[in-house]
Simulated scan of single mutants.
Amino acid sequence: MWRWLFIIGVIFFGWRHCSTAEINYAAPHQVIDNAPQQSEVSGLQPIPLQAYAIQPVAEFKLKARVLSREDYWLGREADLSPTDLVLGWGEMANPQVVKQINIRQSGRWYFWQVESFPIPRRSIETQSANMHLIPANDEVARTLKQIRPGQLITLQGYLVNVSADDGWRWRSSLSREDTGANACELIYVKQLKLIF
């Protein structure tokens, strides 16, 4: 029995992470020049959600292309944020660029790999990001379930820090310039729209 479960798990993992399904890029010539916009906020009360306190630290909005998505079901993070999206703007919203970059997600991380750089490395790092999305309402949650790689979206909400009474913490990055651990944005999403 365990052997069969292991084999099925290996097959699923291989299919999930090695699939070469073609992404359908909506509005491939649409230009997204603007980086995400962020403005500091102060004095806002924490937003209670389940057993957590969500503290807004910056207003945040963007227009971007969805480069990848990953859904999560396990862990405290999944209680709040069931989906991560890798989003791209600037050159990283251009399908001709993105098609030359192997992008994947796992364990709340965003990984990319290239055979040769279509744009400078730093442009890849600063014009794309893995974003943990906390839906603020049912409408945002429904829209989030519909979003697929290749589409264009707009998003508005807050970058947030989350805490629980037992000391558990989850913090957002406040920069698009950082990379690696703790570089992901944690967003309380108030509006989410699919453009194309």
Rank of each mutant, 00 (worst) to 15 (best):
Y72A: 05
E59M: 13
G75K: 06
V66P: 00
S68R: 08
L67S: 05
P46M: 03
A53M: 10
F60V: 08
R76W: 07
V66A: 01
A58R: 11
A58C: 06
A58P: 07
K61R: 12
A53P: 00
Y52T: 09
S42N: 13
W73N: 13
A51C: 03
Q45T: 06
D71G: 08
L44I: 12
L49D: 07
F60E: 04
R76T: 11
P48N: 04
Q50A: 11
Q45Y: 04
W73H: 15
P46C: 04
V41Q: 09
A35M: 13
A51H: 11
Y52N: 04
G43L: 08
S42L: 11
A64M: 01
L62C: 11
R65Q: 01
D71R: 07
E59Y: 12
L49V: 11
I54G: 02
S39V: 14
N34C: 03
Q37Y: 07
I54M: 08
Q45P: 05
V66Q: 00
A64H: 03
K63R: 14
I54L: 06
A64Y: 01
N34E: 15
R69C: 00
A78Y: 11
V41I: 15
K61Q: 14
G43S: 09
A51T: 13
Q37W: 06
Q38C: 12
K63F: 00
Y72G: 03
R76A: 12
P36F: 09
G43W: 09
S68K: 10
Q38T: 15
R69G: 00
E59V: 12
G43Y: 11
W73R: 13
I54S: 02
Q37P: 01
K63Q: 14
Q45D: 10
K63E: 15
L44V: 06
A35G: 02
W73A: 13
I54K: 02
V66H: 00
Q55I: 04
Y52E: 02
S39A: 10
R76P: 01
Q50H: 10
S39C: 04
A78T: 04
E70R: 14
D71N: 09
Q45K: 10
P36Q: 03
Q55V: 02
V57K: 13
F60R: 05
P46Y: 02
P48M: 05
G75V: 05
V41F: 12
L49T: 08
A78C: 07
L49G: 00
R65G: 00
W73G: 03
K63S: 11
Q37N: 08
Q38F: 06
I47G: 05
L62W: 02
I47E: 01
F60A: 06
Y72F: 12
L74I: 14
P36R: 09
A58I: 04
G75P: 09
